[in-house]
């Protein structure tokens, strides 16, 4: 008899509910070294899920340094600047300066371009590191993510059509009108999202377009090459479109993942550091460089609360022992081991 050794069986075994036969097959299974490694990975996971008591790591580490270095322990800092040249802690003041500089720059660059549209459109805009809640004249609610803009026509909105233009990322909660008037989100890249009344998240940035539908029904009208295409989405669907206009429809069972940014949460499921870097660039204007390709492919899972890019980066690097270094102009960050 050969039973399949998996996480569930091993967890059953750890909690003392495995049969004699199952124990026998586990004994055989662990004679293989890589299985034995897996066994300890699961043991660690199981212990973390079933901690016998709240263990205090700080007391444990303090005791260890005391034992290792005795009285001098207080002079040793783990994150010694000499040993970790990359680690940079910024003073609050410098951070503020940098943000001011960044937002001024953004305003100068984009301001003139937007000016044209200002007459025709009411423009709602967010800076890096800013989200904004809006209510449109028809009662629809929009939450605008960082570094995004939403243009709503000053004239005629809600009369003939309800059409808005989005750059960046936003979450929509659209009111269904008695006249079944369509609401259209245009991303300006030959992609229009046509809806009646529904809740969905749109991401439209240079790297591609993503639409996630939480509730209701939407139609995605887009252009692939020369062809006009249409796709109907149902709740839980999400569509990613690459820069060539190729659409890919998938289901998600974790819709919160797409809208967690509304509450300053970042949820990653096996996201590579590269992808995390893109997120920082999109939302906080931080360019993240990862010279080491192995490192760029390491993945991160979990959910994090952070109010700004650097806070997120700090949590991530702190937990993993990575280093980050900010360029002198503060616009880019280099991640390294």
């Amino acid at each position: 008899m050969k039973s399949v050794i998996n996480r569930t069986l091993i967890f059953t075994y750890f909690s003392g509910r495995a049969t004699a036969l199952q124990k026998r097959s586990i004994e055989e299974w662990v004679t293989n070294t890589s299985n034995l490694e897996q066994f300890y990975i699961w043991l660690q996971e199981w212990e973390l899920e079933n901690l016998q008591y709240e263990v205090d790591i700080d007391t444990g580490t303090a005791r260890h340094w005391q034992r290792m270095y005795g009285q001098e322990a207080s002079d040793i800092t783990v994150a010694e600047p000499e040993s970790l040249p990359g680690k940079n802690r910024f003073s609050f003041l410098r951070r503020v300066n940098w943000l001011v500089a960044a937002s001024v720059l953004v305003s100068i660059c984009t301001g003139s371009w937007f000016f044209r549209d200002n007459i025709r459109y009411q423009v709602y805009k967010t800076d890096f590191n800013e989200t904004r809640r809006l209510e449109l004249s028809d009662g629809s609610k929009v939450v605008l993510n960082s570094n995004s803009s939403l243009r709503v026509p000053r004239f005629g909105f809600g009369k003939e059509t309800r059409k808005v233009l989005l750059q960046g990322e936003a979450d929509f909660d659209i009111v269904h009108t008695p006249s079944h008037q369509k609401f259209i989100v245009s991303t300006g890249k030959d992609v229009n999202i046509v809806v009646l009344g529904t809740q969905f998240n749109v991401y439209a940035r240079p790297r591609g377009t993503k639409v996630m539908l939480s509730d209701g029904k939407v139609q995605l009208r887009y252009q692939e090459g020369k062809e006009k295409k249409m796709l109907t989405m149902t709740p839980g669907d999400y569509v990613t479109m690459d820069v060539y206009g190729h659409a890919n429809l998938q289901k998600t069972n974790n819709p919160q993942k797409f809208t967690s940014w509304k509450s300053h949460r970042f949820i990653f499921e096996q996201a590579t550091l590269q992808e995390v870097g893109h997120l920082l660039e999109d939302n906080f204007g931080l360019k993240v460089l990862i010279p080491d390709t192995t490192l760029a492919q390491l993945t991160v899972s979990g959910s994090f609360t952070a109010l700004n890019g650097e806070e997120l980066l700090e949590i991530l690097t702190d937990d993993s022992g990575l280093n980050y270094e900010k360029s002198p102009d503060g616009k880019s960050i280099t991640l390294s081991f």
């Binding site: 390491l298 899972s301 979990g302 994090f304 609360t305 937990d319 993993s320």
Partner: peptide, 13 residues
């Protein structure tokens, strides 16, 4: 301090 409820794992791809 890592905010409460945070868990993180770093995996190889």
């Amino acid at each position: 301090e890592i905010p409460e409820g945070v868990s993180m794992r770093i995996f190889e791809e």
